[in-house]
């Protein structure tokens, strides 16, 4: 499943970039996500909870950050294993930043999400909805955080 979101933030590109390469702040902007441990410079342990009405799924796993400072492109690879046989999730997200003006920055988020297990099987497209919602919330939070 591929997702693309593009949005403009009223903040300088440097600030936006600083945000996107800070694992703690990125996690805070993803509802349900948390960082629990720093393994090395680029790798963290964490968890992700997704809840949709009566259904909830929790994933534990690792997050790796790969930064391309020159092009201001940050890649995140998050791999999680669901609890209670819920299956696995594997997300590859790339965020890139382009300055449109001194206080205007365009952020592009491209993600590829692979989810296996019962939620993907029975979800009637639910995971697509959930992912879309998650990225929408992410962009909203980023916009809000940086605009203030």
């Amino acid at each position: 499943m591929k997702i693309q979101e593009k949005f403009t933030v009223n903040a300088p590109a440097d600030e936006v970039w600083a945000f996107l390469i800070d694992p703690e702040r990125v996690a805070a902007a993803l509802p349900g996500a948390k960082i629990t441990e720093k393994v090395d410079e680029n790798t963290y342990k964490g968890g992700m909870g997704v809840s949709v009405g009566p259904v909830s799924a929790a994933y534990d796993g690792t997050v790796e950050f790969m930064l391309d400072e020159e092009n201001r492109s940050a890649s995140v690879r998050a791999r999680g294993q669901g609890k209670a046989g819920m299956g696995n999730a594997d997300m590859q997200m790339t965020s890139s930043v382009v300055a449109l003006g001194p206080d205007e920055t365009e952020v592009t988020v491209e993600a590829s999400v692979a989810v296996t297990g019962i939620l993907a099987q029975l979800g009637r497209g639910m995971m697509q909805h959930v992912s879309k919602r998650m990225f929408k919330q992410f962009t909203e939070i980023v916009e809000k955080e940086l605009a203030s």
Partner: peptide, 12 residues
């Protein structure tokens, strides 16, 4: 699907 999920695993 391409991730290997069986999408017809119940009578739904």
């Amino acid at each position: 699907d391409e991730d290997g999920n069986n999408l017809a695993g119940s009578f739904m």
